[in-house]
Write a protein that binds this DNA or RNA. Structure first.
Lengths: 217, 217
DNA sequence: TTATAAACAGACCGGTTGTCCTGTTTTGTC
DNA sequence: GACAAAACAGGACAACCGGTCTGTTTATAA
């Protein structure tokens, strides 16, 4: 009886990242041992070490390849595809809330989970995570600026609204994870929706619409 | 040469909690070893084990006695003492932002830090943390209801505003911790301040107060 | 085929962790 | 003072963790 082995470096790497992403999300970085990962992924120590020399390298790959991708897929893409930034934000909040309610438990935001545990532990981790936060915020703010220019649908200051949105979502996910109840997401969304077009302050006056409204695709 | 020993159980317990609170905050639960704590607190294993049989018991004490107290001191008390809920929220945001900027680094919100790491790990942890979140939200909402009754200063729906406030603060602290920049706190505050008195939506009309205010618990 | 490097297997090791255990000292009570 | 219980000291230990190391198999190119 012979046992065949097929070298599949990309598949192996992917499987390890799959398991690591899920385990880090569910148990956190420090509480996940490489032994657990190896067992769950069906991978030997040699293979794991070949693709990821250290545990830190593995986590860094999870952050840069998986967490960033998750934020892009569940937030940036839907917001950019929506008719407006506000509408996009609304859609994501409700989609996530619905999904969480259907699956019956809340594991929290992958970005937030790792950010809390690793930001202070290692500066390389921190910077990789901060980069994702920054891209997330900027995508919303940019979309909002595009709204202002093309459609004219008024709104609050873009950077301000983007920061509040990301913070409210992150915080709401923290609360939801702790209380194991996604309802707070909907409450925060309602609050977000009643953010009025910045009235006071030295912020620039509402910009006049110059171009005709563009057809939405 | 004799070495005298004075039994001071309360002082010993307090010192351990002091160190544990600080260490959990700075490095997290799993990354803090009892050996580190013992060294930092100048406490022997026997003494530590006498007051806190397990690491979990120690963390639970930190949560219930210290984290809850911190939330009460930095949030609930100032908000209750303020002229209105909105004014109280504004004051806390700015006070924390200023404090963080002065100290030059951001360690994050103690409640949030532990909530992320421990909520999914253990149900007892989760419930203790959820209780603090709930009390925090309710204090703001109650204060807001009191504002409505006494002063009449309009505002958004109390529960909604409270949820958004807590979420925005928690999330802003996450971002601030990750980017090591407290500026986002101020941006989120500006956003929060432009939450208008819930205008649209099929939400129930402002509820008329029928009963005198109930004592909280 | 042969040479060469990548891909993988699996044992091994030093260090750490949380907990337990046995003893000693202090404190309070009669 | 006698005595029991609490408070504290400090070592011991088994389990585990992350990383390393050596060896084998597979793919690739000449």
């Amino acid at each position: 009886m012979r046992k065949k082995r097929t070298n599949d470096p990309e598949g192996m790497r992917r499987r390890v990242l799959d398991v690591a992403e899920a385990t880090f999300q569910a148990r956190g970085y420090h509480a996940s041992s490489l032994g657990d990962l190896m067992a769950a992924a069906g991978v030997t120590g040699g293979a794991l070490h070949h693709h990821f020399p250290t545990k830190k390298a593995l986590a860094l790959a999870v952050i840069e390849e998986r967490v960033a991708g998750a934020v892009h897929k569940t937030w940036i893409e839907p917001v950019l595809a929506a008719s407006s930034a506000r509408e996009g934000v609304r859609g994501v909040f409700e989609a996530v809330a619905t999904e969480l309610e259907e699956q019956g438990y809340v594991r929290g935001c992958p970005l937030n989970n790792l950010a809390h545990e690793l930001s202070l532990a290692d500066d390389e981790f921190r910077m990789a995570l901060a980069k994702i936060f920054a891209g997330w915020r900027q995508a919303i703010a940019d979309k909002m600026r595009a709204d202002l220019q093309s459609g004219g649908e008024g709104g609050a200051d873009p950077d301000r609204f983007a920061a509040l949105t990301v913070a409210a979502y992150s915080g709401a996910m923290s609360i939801a994870k702790t209380s194991q109840d996604a309802g707070v997401l909907r409450e925060c969304l309602r609050g977000l929706e009643s953010v009025q077009p910045s009235s006071s302050g030295p912020t620039a006056r509402r910009r006049r619409r110059v171009l005709p409204r563009q057809p939405i695709r």
